[in-house]
Design a protein around this nucleic acid. Sequence first.
DNA 1: GCTTGACCTGGAGCGTGCTCCAGGGACGAG
DNA 2: CTCGTCCCTGGAGCACGCTCCAGGTCAAGC
Lengths: 158, 158
Amino acid sequence: MSTVDRTSPPPHATAGLSIADAAQAVGLSIDTLRYYERDGLMLRPVPRSGGGQRRYEDADLRWVLLVTRLRATGLPIRDVRRYAELVRAGEGNEAERLELLREHRRHVLAQLAEVTEHLGAIDAKIGVYEERVGAASSAPPSSSPSPVSAPVSSPARG
Amino acid sequence: MSTVDRTSPPPHATAGLSIADAAQAVGLSIDTLRYYERDGLMLRPVPRSGGGQRRYEDADLRWVLLVTRLRATGLPIRDVRRYAELVRAGEGNEAERLELLREHRRHVLAQLAEVTEHLGAIDAKIGVYEERVGAASSAPPSSSPSPVSAPVSSPARG
DNA sequence: GCTTGACCTGGAGCGTGCTCCAGGGACGAG
DNA sequence: CTCGTCCCTGGAGCACGCTCCAGGTCAAGC
């Protein structure tokens, strides 16, 4: 990020964001942005200034944002790379891209369901402690988003 | 696991499960069970046979199941250990245990919300591809559990 | 033109959570 | 008692996803 705090990019024809500004914009570290590029996660080499410094353009930023969504939902780096390769390869492999995304979607949904179920059990435990402790110290009596009441066999006095 | 496939444990007074049977029962690997014990995640040293082999009893198995729930929802090993320490310390620190669980619950809920939001965006992308490809190859038109429609700025033609 | 802060590359390092291995003892059916 | 398994310990190794570093270049305000 340039030292001078320019909240908005230069008013004239913008040549793209520096890596620091891009990092700020997408919520990743500078190192991570470089790492993604090195590791083949980008759609194209990020454009450079005359002197070789990165200048992220809108398309690059939008792509990085998609990558962060995929990563944030647990898609491994290698699969993101695979997806990037497909997109890079151009039209004709849409079915393959679709299948990759659908597969990921299945995983995410399964993960959400599993976590929600476990959370239900943990909530039950919280309920027990709330009753045992008199304190309503913070937070209202717990209840999960979808309380998926699982058989909560109380675990060994814990 | 004993070689002889005994689907149910010996009918007589059971002295606890071997580590292989315990692993099977809780869905973890043998190595992971040993690792958990070494790393201080257990409530007590797992009971041993005369010759020093582990014999998991009900209390141990129930505790391991709680640990798996905490791990499956993303609680780091170090925090599970902290929780185990509290329980081991005995009565009097229930408020602290409660706070630990509540804190974890907050994290899990935040995580669920974030993942769900990102999934909404990914779903939108899937929708685009489904339209672009003629194929309804598998799965009905996508839609998330809570479709939390986030502003889906389409990312750089991907 | 100088200075100062930002950026570059290649490569090493690290935290997390297991997973594997060698060398040796325990168990139980026959 | 003897096999064939299973289990033990201590410690090394590994996959993943960054994160940090050194040594050097670039950029822009004065």
